[in-house]
Structures are given as structure tokens and as C-alpha cells.
Design a protein around this nucleic acid. Structure first.
Lengths: 354, 354
DNA sequence: CGGCAAATCTATAACGTTATAGGTTATTTC
DNA sequence: GAAATAACCTATAACGTTATAGATTTGCCG
């Protein structure tokens, strides 16, 4: 039984509009529509207007395969990167490892960063709507992430670097930041620290919550005083962190153990604390997580937990391929659990005895 | 007048083989060839063998646009990256800036890193042969770079991050490492340093030559003793550099001013020198070039020259588009000339008086 | 030896686009 | 008023691939 107005079946209008669609809608021939859209001289102004408007309204986007097949134009720029000389950081390592996992497959990797002035949904919508990829890998998930919801709702294959908590069961790889928080708290407690502080990443991020929870809970279990400051959140440059930490160390009861999330905040935190004359390793400890090898040289006495981003990239690529090929694969959700803290070289390490 | 055997005109056989080509060569129908190549059950074993061999021999590679148009399969994985929280390093910054410059154009960016176990020519050949991109951006050029020669010979649009010296006039953007070498030498000389040393990047790289030449020449002009060590070359982790510098500082006549190329080598160099008890800024200076903001926090007294990789990416994207669209654009070759050295904050700087 | 199935191959159409040649009006020219 | 011209539009083919339905050949059974 159909209702009076056509109830838009979720998938009825899912077909992307083509030149044909526009031709049908306007009554012009396909060729005319094509030429009108490229502003050819032998098409009437009025026709162009109509065609353009209909195209706009239907959300027409040229099919790249069609164009490419006909014209030979790929509309692709390849960036061929040498991995020879480079301190690989988090992002490039992720890219390299995904690309590496894709070697030997038929897949190409296109990279679509989105910028602060942009809606995070924009690239996702573009890719899904124009079907310009078979699947998407995304990073820095939020607790309630609209991108994840969108792709899930559209049945579009994806894998996320990071988890979400919105009741959607999706492929992901994540560093276990809760375990990291616990581990950091534990190690500092065992080193005799009495008052801990956490510098959490921006709160919207999923990993910030995990990290903060693990840290707080471990401290609470041990009856150890701790602070989760509202003012001190890591910023990209670290300027704010440095200032805030410096300020905190000039107040009474300063912390003697700090847990931070990234290389940048570690350096900023230490700089801030040192500004009060205190010495790392003697007067206070810092536990940091890093994917690159920078911090050990920065200060010998920093406590480092290593994150293997390469493993994440590899896992995500494999999981996504499984999604795309609809294999029912069990290993679609992976967690990297940190178990050790690297201390002063050479390699005196604290093993986890859980 | 044709010679007896068809003289393979450079471009006569340039056409990529398609299923049609194989069909013609084997006498089978196109459909048969297609099915044979996918190992369909209703094709005879002998046929499959013949088809596969011919395909192999002709170097057949399926046309992605054809497949995509017919099947809807893109064979593309999209990596959607947040740029929000990240210390952008050299590589990711380059990627971001290129992607950003491509926003609003019809172009997609595919990333193809190549790894140490791989022939650098492999990705280039693949892209050119399969026409899977309209143009290529490549980095870390060598003095005589086969990739550049190949693309130039094939008339394939490209732009290089870095120059070459093989008599080919191509699009590039480069940091002026010669000027950097000179500037570093000059600043240290002006600070009263008496014996300089350079830690050059691996010699095959173009920028290593530029840097070394500028440094050496400037020292020579000033009559300043300097060393271009054969043993000390920057390695990716910096281990070798640290050891070599440490060794050098335990010998007579150690340098009191060192020029290095990267963030990593700067840290390694300083660590090595400090192992002999010397103090940066008092007993020796280090001039380093960096694209990220790490070194200032590492040691306050380091002398920093900043490289704007974002500008490189933007320029390269623009230049490549001009190449592709065959616009005769004058700005196809760009140079970033360093003019200042950042010293201890806040912002006491040495301006170039050239 | 007719008939039937299996094995193997082929013709055709379609995906979405654009270049080309051609068609239809209306308008101008002599 | 016939012919030429301009203005605007359309039909068709092709790019390379694959799914589908159908064609041909071969072997086997009764």
C-alpha cells in the first residue's frame, strides 16, 4: 500500500544523477546537456541557464570514470614520496604504513586532509556521494562522531583510527589510552610520586576521555591525590600548556608527576615546570606517549611509552579491505595495549606485572 | 620509405594494450579474454594459458576507468586526515599543503611512498605507463635523477621538490641550501667561532651538495678553518651522528660551530657534543634548519633557520597544474631563500644584510 | 543416429562521458 | 522569394570493461 506522495524509500533516489537524468528532466539531449555544462558557444543562453539550474538542483557531479574513459584525463595528482630521509611523525607514518599494506593490491591511496575552516563531514560526504573510493579510513574520532554515523548509515565501508561510543560496531584500531593512563599513574606512584597531574588532549577526542579515565581511576584506586585540570589542555603548539604548567608550579602544592599525551605537550610541560627551577627526574616525573624518537634526546629522564602507528596503519588497511570485500573477518577491531615504560637508556625498563 | 621491419616509432607502440589488443593477438573474442583473465570456470585451460601469456607479454594492465565505469569499483582507499591535533612534520606538511592547494580543483591527491626495498623508478613507471595520474610531484631529488629523466623523456608533467643538475629544465621548488650554508657559516663567524664543521646529509641528495658548497665557499671566503667530514653524515635515527660527533669532540681541535641539515641531526649533534661536557651557546654553536617547531624547546641556544614546507607544497601544486594544462607560466621554478637566523627568544634575530 | 548435456566460446549491451558530424529552424542577403 | 547563413540543437560513436544470454562444438547415451 503506497501512501499518496511517493515515500522516498531510503534507496530509491540513491542513484547518482547523470547527464541522462538532467536530459530527462529538462527535455534536452544528453549531448546538449554536456555541452551546456561546459559552456560551449553553440548552446543558447536560456538552455544553459536551465541545464545549470537543474544540474545544481539535482546535485549533479560528473562521473570521473566516464570522463576518464572518454578523455583520458584522470584528474589525479600523484605524490611520490621518498621515505628515505625523514623523521617519520605520527601522520606520515600512518600514511606510509597504509600505503605499504596496500602494495600488491589493486588499491590506490588518496589523501584528503580537512582543515580547521572546513566541516569535517564535507570530505566524507563527497567521497560517499560521488563514490570516489571503495572505503575510508579516518582518524581522531570523537566520542559521538557524525562521520562514523554517516558512513554506517550509508553502509559505506570504513575503518577508524580510534573508537567511538555511539552504539555502532565498526572496524577500528586504537591505542589503549585507558591502559596508558593507568600505566603512567602506576609507574609514577611506584617511583614515589605523591601528587599527580594530567594534561589531557582536547576533550572532544575519544582518546582524551580514555586517557583521563584510566589515569583518574588508577590514582583513585591507589588513594593517590591527583588533578585533572580544566584549564590545562594540550594545544597544538604547546604555548598554552607551557604557560599553564609554569603557573601551576608557582602555586602551592605543585604536582610531582605529570602524564601527557603527545610529544609536543611533553616538551611544553617540561619547559613549563623547569621554569620554576625544578629538575626533571629529581623533583618531578613526566610520562609521555610518542610515536617518533625525539623525547629521549630532549631529556634523558623522561618516561616514555611508545605507540606503534605503523601497526595501526597496517591493521586499518587490512580491516578496511575485509570490510570492502565483505569478508567476515574477526580481526576488525584492534587495540595496542602499552605494557612498558621506557626509562633512562640503556633499556632499564619497567615490565607490567598485571 | 619504410624499412623492412617496422621500425618501432618512439610513439607507435605507445598505446597501452587493452583486452582488444589481446583479443586481436590471440584470435579470441574480447569477452573470452576478459573471462580468461579472471579465471572463469567456462573457459578452457589451454585458452587461459594462451591469454595469460599474451597478456603478460604485452604488459597488459586493466584500465581502471573502464573497470570502474562498468563495475562501480574504484579501487581507491581514501584516507581522511584530521589536521587538528598534530605536530606537522616535513612530510605531512607537504601533503597537507598540496592537498590544500588542490581544494576546489577537480584533482585528487594520491600518495605513493616508496620504500627502501623498492626501486625508486617503480612507482614512477607504473603511474606513467598506466596513466593513473595527470602529473607527479616527487621529492628528495638526486643530482642525476633517473625519475626526472624518465618523466621528461616521456613528456609526462611533473614538478620536483628539489633541483637536479642534468641539463633538464623542469618545474621545481627548492629551499636554497647554498644560501643556507652561507648564512650558517656567516652567523657563526660573526659570533666569533673559529673552527666550523658541517654534518652533511647523504651525499647523493642534491640538497646535500648545495648546502656543503655554500658552507665551504663562505668559510673559504672568510679564511675560516672548516671541516667537511667524510665520516659524519646524517643518518635517519641520528645514532651514527651522535657517536661521530662525540668522538670528534674528544680529539684535539674540536669545532666550535656546527652546521646541520635537519631536526634529527641537530639533536644528535648537540647530544654528541654535550657528552664531552661542552655547553651549547658557550663552547659551541649549532645552526639547524627545521620545518617544525621542536628545536627551540630542545635547547634555547640553538640557532634556527626556518623552512616553510607549506609554501613548497603550494608552489609545487600550482606549478604542476600549469604543466598539466600546458599553460606557459613563468613561475615554474621557485626558491625559498633563507635570510635570517632565529636566536634565543623572544625574537632577537640577525637580519641578512646582503 | 537422434538427442541431450556439457564444455567452450562469442555477440551484445551497458556503465557515463564527450567529439564529431549532421540536422532543424529562423534570419539575413541579393 | 530563393538561397545562403547563423543559431541552436541532436544522433551517433567511441573510450575499456564485464554480465548476460546465446551460439557452437564435442562427447555420450540409448
Amino acid at each position: 500500500m503506497a501512501t499518496i506522495t511517493d515515500p522516498p524509500t531510503p534507496d530509491s533516489d540513491t542513484q547518482r544523477p547523470t547527464l541522462k537524468t538532467i536530459a530527462a528532466a529538462t527535455g534536452f539531449a544528453i549531448a546538449t546537456v554536456s555541452r551546456a555544462l561546459k559552456d560551449a558557444p553553440d548552446i543558447g543562453e536560456e538552455t544553459k541557464r536551465i541545464v545549470r539550474e537543474t544540474a545544481e538542483q539535482l546535485g549533479y557531479r560528473p562521473n570521473r570514470a566516464g570522463v576518464r574513459l572518454r578523455t583520458g584525463k584522470t584528474n589525479v595528482i600523484a605524490l611520490v614520496l621518498s621515505t628515505e630521509t625523514d623523521v617519520m611523525n605520527h601522520t606520515s607514518r600512518l600514511i606510509y604504513s597504509i600505503a605499504n599494506a596496500l602494495r600488491g593490491t589493486a588499491y590506490h591511496l588518496i589523501v584528503t586532509p580537512f582543515f580547521p575552516d572546513q566541516d569535517p563531514m564535507e570530505p566524507i560526504r563527497y567521497i560517499v556521494e560521488t563514490e570516489s573510493a571503495d572505503g575510508i579510513i579516518l582518524n581522531q574520532t570523537k566520542e559521538d562522531d557524525p562521520r562514523v554515523r554517516y558512513m554506517h548509515d550509508h553502509g559505506f565501508p570504513f575503518a577508524a583510527h580510534g573508537r567511538t561510543s555511539m552504539g555502532i560496531d565498526h572496524s577500528f584500531f586504537d591505542f589503549d589510552n585507558e591502559a596508558y593512563g593507568r600505566l603512567g599513574a602506576r609507574v609514577m606512584a611506584e617511583r614515589g610520586r605523591k601528587r599527580l597531574l594530567i594534561v589531557p588532549p582536547p576533550r572532544a577526542h575519544m582518546y582524551a576521555r580514555h586517557m583521563t579515565f584510566g589515569f583518574s581511576d588508577e590514582c583513585a584506586l591507589r588513594g593517590l591525590p591527583f588533578e585533572v585540570s580544566q584549564d590545562i589542555t594540550s594545544d597544538s603548539g604547546g604555548e598554552a600548556v607551557e604557560a599553564a604548567i609554569a603557573a601551576r608550579f608557582h602555586q602551592p602544592n605543585p604536582p610531582d608527576g605529570i602524564l601527557v599525551g603527545s610529544t609536543t605537550s611533553a616538551m611544553a610541560t617540561i619547559a613549563g615546570a623547569e621554569s620554576s627551577g625544578r629538575v626533571l627526574g629529581r623533583d618531578f616525573d613526566v610520562v609521555a606517549k610518542e610515536a617518533i624518537a625525539v623525547l629521549r634526546r630532549f631529556r634523558q629522564d623522561i618516561l616514555i611509552v611508545r605507540e606503534d602507528v605503523g601497526r595501526a596503519g597496517e591493521f586499518l588497511a587490512r580491516a578496511l579491505l575485509a570490510e570492502i570485500e565483505k569478508r567476515d573477518w574477526t580481526d576488525r577491531q584492534g587495540l595496542e595495549v602499552p605494557v612498558k615504560v621506557e626509562q633512562r637508556p640503556p633499556g632499564r625498563e619497567v615490565e607490567d606485572k598485571t
